[in-house]
Design a protein around this nucleic acid. Structure first.
Length: 365
DNA sequence: AACCCGGGGGT
DNA sequence: ACCCCAGGGTT
């Protein structure tokens, strides 16, 4: 059972895991597709947040073929609310690639897996070990934290050299005969025991943990402090004409690329409506000879590196005003708009204004 | 090497 | 208010 020659860390970790393993659905399978799907969903995402998305996605797309054949917009709609939307695009890319180039069979080695879109060192190691038993260590936020504490590693975990250094350490620790167990164990250990606020009093590894023995728990892991968030000002206009609203898909290299939104004017600071009209010719045309209603809206939407200040207005554009096609925009019926992926900010904006006739029971998700 | 990409929960 | 989460891609 307990093979010899394991590092004391590994021995203690695996013993701990036998008593504390979480029961998670993606641990009940060896299907590389399901494992890959779970790992992408869980990138920078807590288990509790990702779990319902994983279950739903696996239900809607039970095989890599079904995902490859799906419309990307359908995938985006299911990804809505999970964040980091480029994951969805790369997920689709890889599904099509696996079907077209690998006959629907995922490659079986780390080196091949890591070349797939959206599959980096962590995810490739996870799939390789969980599905194929390859002894590659996963190095995620948990592993950085645990190894930094246990071995007293002073390297800034945000430094570009950190991944290699920690991977080398983990490579020395991972048992060749049970890499999957080690990888699962270290992530549960990081989540349940050696968490950001660790439970050292009940930790079986504290006797040999550098940070604990030195009473320097607060010093590890070493991490550079991040800069302040950037402020942005999003001014949304729900432009309505003939039971349709003007919307567009965000396509530029920016937040929420691939999601849909109402007409929006971004400003560099809080602006009055009059100033916004001066800044945007199309808007000034559509708003002439009609009334504008100020809307309740989320005041602030916080992302990890941006603060979005939000205001919104409702405009009933006169039917006789002929709006020529605005590049990138289209008029759409609310019930069709509902089917498209939207940011949480926009969903909140809609929720705040369900009383508008244009939404009329068609919008709530 | 530096920067970008979400949303949510814990403390 | 700040931290961090089963990270990866782009420039």
């Amino acid at each position: 059972m307990q093979s010899t020659n394991h590092h004391p860390f590994t021995e203690g970790l695996l013993t701990w895991y036998r008593q504390h393993a979480r029961e998670l659905p993606w641990r009940q399978t060896q299907d590389p597709y399901a494992i890959w799907l779970s790992e992408v969903v869980l990138q920078q995402t807590r288990v509790a947040q990702g779990l319902p998305y994983y279950l739903k996605l696996l239900e809607v797309f039970p095989t890599v073929e079904s995902l490859a054949q799906a419309e990307e917009s359908v995938l985006f709609r299911h990804w809505q609310g999970l964040g980091y939307y480029s994951r969805a695009r790369n997920l689709h890319k890889t599904a099509k690639l696996v079907v077209a180039n690998f006959q629907g069979q995922f490659p079986t080695t780390y080196c091949e897996l890591v070349q797939l879109p959206g599959v980096g060192p962590y995810t490739a190691a996870a799939i390789a070990s969980f599905a194929f038993g390859e002894a590659k260590p996963v190095v995620d936020g948990n592993v950085f934290r645990i190894l930094a504490r246990y071995f007293g590693i002073e390297t800034d975990i945000l430094h570009s050299s950190a991944r290699k250094e920690f991977t080398d350490v983990a490579m020395e620790l991972i048992p060749q005969d049970q890499p999957a167990e080690f990888n699962q164990a270290i992530m549960d250990f990081g989540s349940l025991q050696c968490s950001p606020a660790p439970l050292c009093a009940s930790c079986p590894l504290s006797l040999t943990c550098f940070a604990f023995q030195q009473k320097r728990i607060q010093d590890f892991p070493v991490k550079q402090k991040k800069a302040k968030q950037k402020n942005r000002y999003f001014n949304y206009f729900i432009l309505e004409q003939g039971n349709q609203v003007l919307v567009r898909e965000r396509k530029e290299r920016d937040i929420w690329s691939g999601l849909w939104e109402f007409y929006m004017v971004e400003s560099t600071q809080e602006e009055e409506l009059e100033s916004l009209l001066e800044m945007d010719d199309n808007l000034s045309i559509m708003l002439q000879s009609t009334s504008v209603q100020s809307l309740k809206s989320p005041k602030l939407h916080i992302l990890s590196h941006q603060k979005i200040h939000c205001r919104a207005w409702h405009v009933q554009v006169p039917d006789n005003l002929d709006i020529n096609e605005l590049a990138g925009f289209q008029w759409i019926r609310p019930e069709d708009f509902e089917k498209l992926g939207k940011s949480v900010l926009l969903l909140n904006l809609i929720t705040d204004n369900l009383h508008l006739e244009i939404f009329n029971d068609s919008m709530p998700r």
